[in-house]
Computed example of a mutant assay.
Amino acid sequence: MTDEALGTAPSVSLADVRANMVNVEIVKHVSKSGQILRWAVIEAQNGFAVTGRPSCAVSAENDNAAKGEKVAIENTENEMWPLMGYALREKLQS
C-alpha cells in the first residue's frame, strides 16, 4: 500500500467535525479555591450534545478566558471524533 492510497478511504476530518457543530456553549465554574474550569457543550447537527474534558486555570490570576474556551472546545472536538467515526462506520456498513 502506498501513502497515496491511505487518503482515499472514507474518514472523518477535523473539517467534518467542525462542519457538524451547530452550537457551542461555554460553561464556566469557579471552585471555592478559585480554580476556574470551562467546558464546551457542542450541539451536533442531529441535536446530540457532546462535552469534553474541561480547561482549567489553577487560580483566577492565571485565567485567560479566550485560551480556556479554545482548549475546552478542542477537548470536546476530540470527543466528537470517535462518535462521528462510529456513525460513518454504521453508514458504510448499510
Rank of each mutant, 00 (worst) to 15 (best):
residue 71 V to M: 08
residue 20 N to H: 10
residue 63 D to I: 02
residue 74 E to M: 08
residue 90 E to P: 05
residue 52 G to V: 07
residue 69 E to C: 09
residue 47 G to I: 13
residue 17 V to L: 05
residue 45 Q to Y: 10
residue 24 V to H: 05
residue 54 P to W: 06
residue 50 V to L: 02
residue 2 T to E: 09
residue 32 K to D: 11
residue 36 I to G: 02
residue 67 K to E: 08
residue 70 K to I: 00
residue 85 G to W: 04
residue 88 L to T: 04
residue 35 Q to V: 08
residue 68 G to T: 02
residue 66 A to V: 15
residue 19 A to F: 11
residue 59 S to E: 13
residue 50 V to T: 05
residue 94 S to E: 13
residue 44 A to L: 10
residue 36 I to S: 00
residue 44 A to K: 07
residue 82 P to G: 03
residue 26 I to P: 02
residue 10 P to G: 02
residue 18 R to T: 12
residue 7 G to T: 14
residue 20 N to D: 15
residue 83 L to Y: 00
residue 42 I to V: 01
residue 10 P to Y: 06
residue 54 P to C: 06
residue 8 T to N: 15
residue 18 R to H: 09
residue 47 G to R: 10
residue 64 N to T: 03
residue 25 E to L: 05
residue 13 S to G: 09
residue 59 S to V: 03
residue 78 N to W: 04
residue 30 V to Q: 07
residue 45 Q to P: 07
residue 56 C to V: 12
residue 21 M to L: 10
residue 54 P to S: 00
residue 14 L to G: 03
residue 43 E to H: 01
residue 40 A to W: 01
residue 57 A to Q: 08
residue 84 M to F: 12
residue 61 E to Q: 13
residue 88 L to R: 10
residue 92 L to H: 02
residue 82 P to I: 11
residue 13 S to W: 01
residue 43 E to C: 02
residue 81 W to G: 01
residue 68 G to F: 06
residue 71 V to S: 09
residue 89 R to D: 10
residue 19 A to S: 11
residue 76 T to Y: 05
residue 4 E to Y: 11
residue 66 A to M: 13
residue 75 N to E: 10
residue 51 T to G: 00
residue 66 A to R: 15
residue 44 A to M: 12
residue 29 H to K: 09
residue 22 V to M: 10
residue 19 A to P: 06
residue 57 A to I: 07
residue 49 A to N: 08
residue 78 N to H: 07
residue 43 E to P: 02
residue 22 V to G: 01
residue 62 N to P: 06
residue 66 A to D: 14
residue 88 L to G: 01
residue 84 M to C: 07
residue 6 L to W: 13
residue 79 E to T: 09
residue 10 P to Q: 07
residue 32 K to T: 12
residue 64 N to D: 12
residue 66 A to I: 13
residue 58 V to M: 13
residue 6 L to S: 15
residue 89 R to K: 13
residue 6 L to N: 12
residue 88 L to K: 06
residue 45 Q to K: 11
residue 85 G to E: 12
residue 77 E to C: 01
residue 80 M to V: 01
residue 18 R to C: 03
residue 61 E to G: 07
residue 83 L to F: 00
residue 2 T to C: 00
residue 9 A to M: 11
residue 55 S to A: 09
residue 49 A to E: 11
residue 59 S to K: 14
residue 1 M to T: 14
residue 44 A to H: 04
residue 3 D to L: 15
residue 43 E to V: 04
residue 86 Y to R: 04
residue 13 S to C: 08
residue 68 G to E: 00
residue 66 A to G: 13
